[in-house]
Design a binder for these strands. Structure first.
Length: 450
RNA sequence: GCGGGCGUCGUACAAUGGCUAGUAUGCCAGCCUUCCAAGCUCGAGAUGCGAGUUCGAUUCUCGCCGCCCGCACCA
């Protein structure tokens, strides 16, 4: 993993966020090659889920939403617990619950200060349930939602808005809009790629757990209780997508959730075998019943029932969700493609064996020699032509082997060389990243050949 | 957030309470080069940030920030 992080930095895929200021934990910037790879993964995902599925449509919802959205979703209430930690064994206690146990009225809606005062006044009566010690840290509120001050001009910020804790809420909010304005009929799906923010206590493992991240979600709306067959089908479809992306199947596995949240019927993760950390979640596939739409009905007062156009039956649809972390799939793609090969005659070659459609640069164009102006000029022309159709790079630095290696490290599938024969018959050599073999083709055929 | 470790050019390493902080590689430019990191020349590039001790701090002390490991967290 260290090698991959190092390559990602060295070759301009991923940088630490705000690095020149000392860095910000849990934030990463995608560099010139990183953004290409990321966009290519997104493009592939969108094609698979929107373009190729007749009953799916796309969406891009506003990141800021009515604060009540996050109350309805359970993020506000469920994640504002006042906690203190035992200094001996690091066990965490719910301060409000422990205070109530000893007869002190308290609840989780009180402020951190109020609870802190109550807690400090009763420290001698509260023992750690695990080790019995009475030595606790100060009370802290933990809420993973990130707040902002959108629309607050007074600076008092007594009505904070939240940055999205998950991207998928935008889909539920627009369920009715999509039913009303398109010809979508249940069952149908909505796909969205969007940003999410969480105040992770300790972001860790490079792109794996970050405070700002991007999720690629699909929500499939179905008739109540008719979840089983579709759930199985969607699980298989998602597995196939990972294989289609070029991920090796032996590095993937299923993991079923052991502790389901109360409303969920079933939940499985697709895990990838990351270098160093081992298998961990890339995507969750959840059978969520009608929880999300029902909650938004309740809190918004808007009727989100669906009326079946044929039978007239009214119901709140159930939802089958797929939710993938873009950083996690990015890291999986990079890890899976990374190879260090032994080279004949000693030495090694670092190569990213990316599926060509994912490669940041599709084709690099070199003149065989730099000090022959006619070769350089002709190579420039070829580069101009190819750039019209794909991401290309021109390189005339150093010797040719060096340029090949440079492209290998960023996963460029093809390198085109303009040599002396090009000047005579208009053919160039095309060198393959994986085999390092070359073939000669005419410039006109290049685009179709690549 | 807690405990432990760490922080020197892009990367990987070296050195030092005081002389211009060194090497490799990468990068830039030039020369050379008729296909897989050859060679020569030139150049840019670092002590994470801030305070303290000191005549003088990259080096010692403290705080902050970041990274790694473990715990906890991950709806």
């Amino acid at each position: 993993m260290e090698e991959i992080v190092s390559l990602a930095k060295r070759r301009g895929f991923v940088y630490q966020g705000s690095e020149i200021y000392g860095g910000e934990a849990g934030l990463y910037d995608f560099g010139p090659y990183g953004v290409e790879l990321l966009n290519n993964i997104k493009k592939n995902w969108w094609r698979w889920n929107v373009q190729l599925k007749p009953n799916y449509v796309g969406l891009d919802s506003a990141m800021f939403k009515d604060p009540k959205v996050w109350v309805a979703s359970g993020h506000v209430g469920g994640f504002a617990d006042p906690l203190a930690e035992c200094k001996k064994c690091n066990t965490r206690i719910r301060v409000d619950k422990e205070l109530e146990k000893i007869g002190v009225p308290a609840d989780e809606k009180m402020t951190e200060q109020e609870l802190g005062t109550l807690f400090d006044g009763n420290r001698d009566k509260i023992k750690c349930p695990n080790c019995g010690a009475k030595d606790f840290t100060n009370v802290r509120m933990f809420n993973m939602l990130v707040t902002s001050n959108l629309g607050d001009f007074t600076g008092e910020n007594d009505t904070p808005v939240y940055l999205p804790g998950e991207a998928c809420q935008g889909i539920y909010l627009n369920f009715k809009n999509i039913v009303d304005t398109t010809r979508m009929k249940i069952p149908f799906g909505v796909a969205q790629i969007g940003k999410a923010f969480r105040n992770e206590i300790s972001p860790r493992n490079f792109l794996f757990r970050t405070r700002e991240f991007e999720q690629a979600d699909t929500q499939y709306f179905i008739r109540p209780h008719e979840n089983e067959a579709d759930y199985q089908r969607i699980k298989q479809d998602r597995w196939q997508w990972f294989l289609n992306l070029g991920i090796r199947e032996e590095n993937l596995r299923w993991k079923q959730h052991e502790h389901l949240v109360f409303y969920a019927k079933d939940a499985w993760d697709i895990e990838y075998n990351y270098p160093s950390y081992g298998f961990d979640e890339v995507e969750g596939i959840h059978d969520r019943t009608d929880y999300d739409l029902s909650q938004h009905m309740k809190y918004s007062g808007t009727d989100l029932n669906y009326t079946d156009p044929k039978t007239g039956e009214k119901y709140v649809p159930w939802v089958l969700e797929t939710s993938m972390g873009m950083g996690r799939i990015f890291l999986a793609v990079l890890s899976d493609a990374y190879k260090v090969e032994e080279v004949e005659g000693g030495g090694t070659r670092t190569v990213l064996k990316l599926k060509p459609e994912l490669a940041p640069v599709k084709c690099a164009v070199f003149p065989l020699l730099k000090n022959k102006p006619e070769l350089v000029a002709r190579a420039r022309e070829v580069y101009e032509i190819l750039s019209q159709n794909m991401m290309c790079e021109f390189d005339d630095n150093g010797n040719i082997g060096k340029r090949y290696r440079r492209q290998d490290e960023i996963g460029t599938p093809s390198c085109v060389v303009v040599d002396f024969q090009t000047l005579e018959d208009g053919t160039v050599t095309v060198r393959d990243r994986d085999t390092t073999e070359q073939r000669r083709v005419g410039i006109e055929e290049l685009v179709s050949n690549l």
